[in-house]
Amino acid sequence: MPAPFRKVRRTLRTGALALVLAAAALVVPDAAVHPTDVALVKVERADGVAVRDQDVIWVLSVGSDARPGQPMLRSRGDAIQLVGLNTRTGSAVAIGVPRDSWVPIPGHGHGRVNSALTYGGPALMGRTVGNLVGVQPEYVFVTRFPFFEDMVDDIGGIHVRNPRRFSDDDLKPLGFARGRIKVDGYGAMAFARIRKTLAGGDFDRSANQQRVLRGIQQTVRARADEPGFVERGVLTVMQHLHTDLPPGELFRFAQALAHVDPAKVTTCVLGGSIGNVRGASIVRPNVAQARRYGAAARSDAFLRRC
């Protein structure tokens, strides 16, 4: 059998096996007790906002700032990325929303966008970001940062393309070199969270978060054919996952992820300006730009330019 056909068959096999394992983990509970470090929650889209095209799934990805003992789904959010997945073409788009963006939060006046998770959990967080961009997410995916670090370590680290050298006295005193660099779990977390020493502040941090997501996706794609790699990864996530999705819908979600083509991934960070509210620094997001991104990517999960 020609090599290209063998590769396609292996990819289909590992993808199908991942879906089977994901369903099995839902239907046959693990006897061990594991902490909830990841949540995939389906949310109701607000009326009056255009819904997704049938080929595109919209997911809001959020990192929870919850400390040990704090509820993951009711703590401030970070690493806020609105992600569109096109199940037909394999394209994907990520729209980064700076965490300090000052926006209307339904039922709570105005506030930083990341506080919506505290006020109303994933549903309110999804609605708040959806109102800003004009596309309501169907799912909200939340994870704790310690689990994120472990996940990156489990896949052997990732490579990211760093456009400029930067450091942070607390998180990374020795800093990150410019260029293509490899980072472990802690390094990926620090790369995604450092803000104060970046020239663009919250905007550059959001762009770095997108670079980390690209690095994870590329590493998983490159290692997917290794025996046992997909199986171990799926089981690890499922053991720590809280979800309200039935197995059939989880299949649909997993299939969308499995079909992403790295060559068809586009990323943009929502722009804006720095402001001040009651003595606190905020980001005033460019709402018109947010709506343009949403309108352009809604039907095909692709942005031609930022």
Rank of each mutant, 00 (worst) to 15 (best):
V8Q: 10
R10E: 10
G15H: 09
L17F: 07
L17I: 15
V20G: 01
A22L: 12
A31I: 12
V33L: 14
V33A: 14
A39K: 03
K42G: 13
A46Y: 01
D47M: 07
V49I: 14
A50M: 08
W58T: 14
L60T: 10
G63W: 05
S64A: 11
D65T: 10
A66N: 03
P68F: 08
M72S: 03
L73I: 11
D78G: 01
A79S: 14
A79V: 15
T89F: 05
G90I: 12
S91L: 03
S91I: 11
G96A: 09
G107E: 05
H110D: 12
G111P: 00
V129K: 02
V140A: 07
F141Y: 11
R144T: 13
P146D: 05
F148S: 06
F148I: 08
V152Y: 02
D154I: 04
V160I: 12
R164G: 09
R165K: 14
R165V: 10
D169A: 13
K172T: 10
L174I: 10
R178W: 03
G187T: 03
A188F: 03
A188K: 04
I194G: 00
L198I: 10
G201Y: 05
S206H: 01
N208C: 07
Q210N: 06
R214E: 13
G215H: 07
R221K: 13
A224R: 09
F229V: 12
F229I: 09
T236N: 12
M238G: 03
L241T: 14
V260C: 07
V260T: 08
C268G: 12
V269L: 06
V269W: 05
V277G: 00
I282P: 00
Q289H: 06
Y293I: 11
A297L: 15
